[in-house]
């Protein structure tokens, strides 16, 4: 991308006869050219396997499905059908809400944990970090499945409570609802919430805390006025890392969501499967991306405002 500009600044005296030598000289002289040369295979891959597909997705969202054929005439039909169908809008809205709850829940739970490791654990910090992250390397599918076992009709909680004599009938509110989806997702993405918060807490210069204390702040005020503001960058990063990927999830709602827990990801998946309406699926994906971007921008704007007012 920026190689052309680098070329022009690199060397004006290129003997055209020997392009290889010219290239060599350019590489040795110009740092940016060297850097981008090393980056080029990765950038090529990412453009091919991510950039181009997303561009195509955008393109196809303006096509229409004509029975088995896809009509490539430009049309806004898919977007109109989204605007016309309240069900679709409801699903998107619910997905955003569920992801929002997941984000809040995982960040609220992760913060004290990250704080504990950063400030209270003196020895074996590394062991704690391994302990926290290892479960998240196991198959995502299996972790979701695990919650199905825990929350199910005859699952761990129900059969356990029945066995202990606390309940007669299995609790039906555990599985197949948005709550189960939120809980499962918050569990599945916990490491994404902990790590950024931990890093931001670990970076805080401890002398700032001492200073706050010496200037008369108690533990609560010290946390409120020093630790929390300085770790906000981590909290914001954690929120984004949890919120954005969970919006499109369809495995969790399929396994533990039930009909009331269906999300936009399920609708998209169906368009590429049973319903076989790829253009509509593409349009729904684009709409989801736009919605995510909008929420993220609003969130960043809001947190920036809060932070600038606070300090």
């Amino acid at each position: 991308m920026s190689e052309p500009t680098a070329v022009s600044t690199g060397s004006g005296v290129a003997p055209m006869g020997t392009p290889l030598r010219w290239w060599r000289r350019l590489i040795l002289r110009n740092e940016a050219v060297r850097g981008y040369t090393l980056l080029s295979p990765t950038l090529f891959l990412m453009t091919l396997a991510l950039g181009a597909p997303v561009f195509f997705l955008f393109l196809v969202s303006f096509f229409t499905q004509d029975l088995l054929e896809i009509s490539t005439d430009f049309s806004l039909e898919n977007y109109m059908s989204f605007l016309g169908k309240e069900n679709y809008q409801k699903l998107l809205w619910r997905s955003l809400k569920v992801s929002g709850f997941v984000t809040v829940l995982s960040v609220v739970l992760a913060y004290p944990m990250a704080y504990f490791i950063a400030f209270r654990v003196r020895k074996n910090k590394f062991a704690w970090l391994i302990l926290i992250t290892v479960p998240f390397w196991t198959s995502y599918l299996l972790r979701v499945f695990a919650w199905k076992i825990v929350l199910g009709h005859n699952g761990v909680i129900n059969s356990g409570l029945t066995e202990l004599g606390f309940i007669e009938e299995p609790l039906t509110f555990l599985l197949y609802n948005p709550f189960a989806v939120v809980l499962t997702l918050a569990h599945a993405w916990a490491a994404f919430a902990i790590m950024p918060i931990y890093v931001s807490l670990e970076k805080i210069d401890r002398s700032l805390l001492e200073a706050a204390r010496d200037l008369g702040d108690g533990p609560a005020m010290r946390f409120w006025r020093v630790t929390l503001p300085l770790s906000m960058a981590g909290v914001v990063a954690a929120s984004l890392l949890v919120f954005i990927p969970t919006v499109g999830d369809f495995v969790t709602p399929t396994m533990v969501g039930g009909p009331k827990g269906t999300l936009i990801g399920n609708l998209i998946q169906i368009q590429f499967g049973k319903a076989n309406n790829w253009p509509l699926g593409a349009a729904l994906s684009v709409i989801s991306l736009i919605a995510i971007t909008a929420v993220v921008c609003a969130f960043l704007w809001f947190t920036k405002r809060v932070r600038t007012q606070e300090l």
Partner: peptide
Amino acid sequence: VVPAIIVGVA
């Protein structure tokens, strides 16, 4: 970060 489903269908 990008939802896997979107990368997948794209």
